[in-house]
């Protein structure tokens, strides 16, 4: 075998071994645990905080208002849908108050006329002409509309 080829083979073997060593050292520990990905990332994603805690949590303190809501047309709607996420409020209720929407635009997101809204699914109103001077909640109790 010619000397230059011998030298190249030695060099090649060194480079490949170095690469394999690096590959071994640099691959994350949990890689390949379930598939071609870092198994630990599943737990990391699962551990992210929950922000919308759900009406079942709200009822613990606000039982009367939840009961009122359950009797009305908005019974299926989660409290946080209008009031915003409560994950801070449930820990520090005095400090972190929730949102109390009262604008006509807010109600309009569901209740303004739009031909695409299924008629049976939601009551619709001509927002521009239906008592434009008043807030919706002056006449309609959002918890029992």
């Amino acid at each position: 075998m010619p000397s230059q080829l011998k030298r190249l083979l030695v060099l090649g073997v060194i480079i490949i071994s170095l690469f394999l060593l690096l590959k071994h050292l640099a691959t994350p520990v949990s890689f390949g645990q379930y598939g071609h990905y870092r198994g630990n990332s599943l737990n990391e994603i699962a551990a992210l905080p929950v922000k919308y805690v759900g009406s079942k949590t709200c009822v613990k303190c606000h039982d009367s208002i939840v009961a009122l809501k359950l009797e009305g047309l908005h019974s299926d709607i989660q409290c946080e849908n209008c009031h915003g996420p409560a994950y801070l409020h449930i820990k520090t209720p005095k400090k972190d108050k929730l949102f109390r929407p009262d604008s006509r635009e807010f109600c309009a997101k569901c209740h303004s006329f739009n031909k695409a809204r299924p008629e049976k699914a939601v009551t619709q109103q001509d927002i521009k002409n239906h008592h434009p001077e008043k807030k919706c909640i002056t006449c309609h109790n959002p918890h029992q509309p």
Binding site: P49, Y52, D76, C110
Partner: peptide, 23 residues
């Protein structure tokens, strides 16, 4: 979208599903 994997794993529904007013 993670399908709210962090909620699924805690037995909750994804946030978008829970908050859909018409289900």
């Amino acid at each position: 979208c993670t399908l709210c994997y962090h909620r699924l794993k805690k037995g909750l529904n994804p946030a978008c599903m829970d908050n859909c007013p018409t289900k």
